[in-house]
Simulated assay, not measured.
Amino acid sequence: MPERQQFSIKQLSADDLEKYIEQLGDLLHACVHAGASIGFVMPFSQTDAEDYWAARVLSAVQTNSVIVLAAMGGDALIGTVQLDIDTMPNQPHRAEVRKLMVHPDHRGQGIAKALMLEIEKVAEEHTRSLLTLDTRTGDAAEPLYTSLGYEIAGVIPGYCLDPFEDRLDATTIMYKTLQ
């Protein structure tokens, strides 16, 4: 287990995303290579990881449709989570939690839990009372989500490609009503 490290959580602006693009790429690259099923499959390069942040997330942050929180260990970016608040007019109360990641070298220190608790506060600040997410069925994150009060809405078999193997993995759809 890694030595317990102090960390802080901050919301990343578009300028921050540009500043941290290499570290964000490092984080995503390391998580995918460690087996995270977060939308990417092998081969997956550092350039692919940085391109995801620059092409997909930066514009969403610029338009205020996605909020990105980062866990910082000093100057090092060691974890992130996203909140998609770009919902349809009949869903102003809802948001989707996406891409919870903690660098493999920093896992087991409560960083993922802290990011999730903080993203819930951010959701409430944006008057969101229902959060949804999906996670690969049986993944290590599933017990974390249930421990935080997320409930299983259902499982969809054959939802996505496994990052390493030629097979389809199921996903578990979860939700939480905020108080």
Rank of each mutant, 00 (worst) to 15 (best):
Q62M: 13
N64F: 03
V66H: 04
I67Q: 13
V68K: 02
V68M: 12
V68E: 08
L69P: 03
A70T: 10
A71M: 06
A71K: 09
G73P: 00
G73M: 13
D75K: 10
D75L: 07
D75A: 14
A76M: 10
L77R: 08
L77D: 12
I78K: 08
T80R: 11
Q82W: 01
L83G: 04
D84W: 00
D86R: 14
D86N: 15
M88Q: 14
M88S: 12
N90Y: 10
R94C: 00
E96A: 14
R98F: 03
L100E: 06
L100K: 07
H103E: 02
D105T: 10
H106L: 08
Q109P: 03
G110K: 02
I111Q: 10
K113H: 04
L115P: 08
L117T: 10
V122L: 04
S129L: 12
L131E: 09
T132D: 01
L133W: 03
D134Q: 00
T135R: 10
R136P: 02
D139H: 11
A141T: 05
E142T: 03
P143S: 04
L144G: 12
Y145Q: 12
T146Q: 15
L148Y: 07
L148E: 14
G149K: 13
E151H: 09
E151R: 15
I152Y: 00
V155P: 04
